[in-house]
Amino acid sequence: LEELEQFAKTFKQRRIKLGFTQGDVGLAMGKLYGNDFSQTTISRFEALNLSFKNMCKLKPLLEKWLNDAE
């Protein structure tokens, strides 16, 4: 859980630094990986307001997006 919290915090900082909005991330993930995510979902991930199971599902996809974006 602590690792997920740290990743969510780091993800948000890096996303902002790269100049992407939460909506941008959701759209890009849909185009790149075929998984559409709403701005709300990205927001809830960053705020740790998703279930643990959903957080765990999203984390590898967001890590991949972040690596591709950088």
Rank of each mutant, 00 (worst) to 15 (best):
L1Y: 15
L1N: 07
L1I: 13
L1D: 05
L1S: 08
L1A: 04
E2S: 08
E2A: 10
E2G: 03
E3V: 05
E3A: 05
E3W: 03
E3M: 06
E3D: 13
E3T: 04
E3C: 03
E3Y: 04
L4M: 11
L4F: 02
E5L: 11
Q6T: 14
Q6N: 15
Q6S: 11
Q6K: 15
F7Y: 04
F7V: 15
F7G: 07
F7K: 00
F7I: 03
A8I: 12
A8R: 04
A8G: 03
A8V: 14
K9V: 05
K9H: 02
K9P: 02
K9T: 11
K9M: 06
K9E: 06
T10Q: 12
T10F: 14
T10C: 09
T10D: 07
F11R: 00
F11S: 03
F11P: 00
F11T: 02
F11Y: 03
F11G: 00
F11M: 04
K12D: 00
K12P: 06
Q13S: 12
Q13K: 15
Q13D: 02
R14G: 07
R14W: 03
R14I: 04
R15L: 01
R15G: 00
R15V: 01
R15W: 00
R15C: 01
I16A: 09
I16P: 00
I16K: 11
I16L: 12
K17Y: 07
K17R: 04
K17M: 12
K17W: 09
K17E: 14
K17L: 11
K17A: 13
L18M: 07
L18V: 04
L18E: 02
L18W: 03
G19R: 05
G19H: 01
F20E: 02
F20N: 04
F20A: 10
T21S: 15
T21N: 10
T21L: 03
T21I: 01
T21F: 01
Q22L: 13
Q22W: 07
Q22E: 11
Q22N: 05
Q22P: 13
Q22S: 12
Q22F: 05
Q22D: 10
Q22T: 12
G23D: 14
G23W: 07
G23P: 05
G23F: 12
G23S: 11
G23H: 14
G23Y: 10
D24L: 04
D24F: 05
D24C: 04
D24P: 01
D24M: 05
V25W: 01
V25R: 02
V25G: 01
V25K: 01
V25L: 02
V25P: 01
G26C: 09
G26L: 08
G26K: 06
G26H: 06
G26F: 06
G26N: 10
G26D: 08
G26P: 03
G26Y: 09
L27V: 13
L27T: 08
L27Y: 05
L27G: 07
L27H: 15
L27Q: 13
A28F: 05
A28L: 09
A28M: 09
M29Q: 02
M29S: 02
G30L: 11
G30Q: 15
G30F: 14
G30K: 10
G30V: 11
G30P: 03
K31C: 05
K31T: 06
K31P: 05
K31N: 03
K31Y: 07
K31A: 10
L32N: 08
L32H: 12
Y33D: 05
Y33V: 04
Y33Q: 07
Y33L: 12
Y33N: 07
Y33T: 08
G34T: 04
G34Q: 09
G34F: 03
N35R: 13
N35Y: 02
N35A: 12
D36W: 11
D36I: 12
D36Q: 10
D36N: 09
D36T: 11
D36R: 09
F37K: 04
F37Y: 05
F37S: 05
S38Y: 03
S38Q: 10
S38D: 15
S38C: 15
T40R: 14
T40Q: 14
T40H: 10
T40Y: 15
T40W: 08
T40L: 13
T40E: 02
T41H: 08
T41W: 06
T41K: 14
T41D: 11
I42L: 07
I42E: 00
I42V: 14
I42R: 00
I42T: 02
I42Y: 01
S43D: 04
S43Q: 14
S43M: 12
R44H: 10
R44W: 03
R44Y: 04
R44K: 09
F45G: 00
F45D: 00
F45M: 05
F45A: 01
F45P: 00
F45H: 00
E46G: 00
A47G: 13
A47K: 11
A47T: 14
L48W: 05
L48P: 02
L48T: 13
N49H: 07
N49Y: 07
N49G: 13
N49A: 11
N49W: 03
N49L: 10
L50K: 01
S51Q: 06
S51R: 08
S51A: 08
S51P: 13
S51C: 06
S51L: 01
F52C: 09
F52M: 11
F52D: 13
F52H: 15
K53V: 09
K53D: 10
K53T: 10
K53S: 12
K53E: 15
K53R: 14
K53L: 13
N54S: 14
N54M: 12
N54L: 12
N54P: 05
N54D: 15
N54W: 09
M55D: 02
M55K: 02
M55F: 05
M55H: 03
M55P: 00
M55S: 06
C56Y: 15
C56P: 01
C56H: 06
K57P: 02
K57E: 12
K57C: 13
K57N: 08
K57I: 08
K57D: 15
L58S: 04
L58P: 01
L58Y: 05
K59Y: 07
K59I: 05
K59C: 05
K59H: 11
K59Q: 09
P60T: 07
P60G: 12
P60F: 05
L61V: 12
L62H: 00
L62T: 02
L62P: 01
L62D: 02
E63Q: 07
E63L: 14
E63C: 02
E63S: 06
E63K: 05
K64L: 07
K64V: 07
K64F: 04
K64D: 09
K64Q: 12
K64C: 05
W65I: 01
W65V: 03
W65C: 02
L66S: 04
L66W: 02
N67D: 14
D68N: 13
D68L: 08
D68S: 14
D68C: 06
D68Q: 13
D68E: 11
A69H: 09
A69F: 08
A69Q: 15
A69W: 07
A69N: 09
A69M: 13
A69C: 13
A69L: 07
E70P: 02
E70G: 05
E70W: 15
E70K: 14
E70S: 15
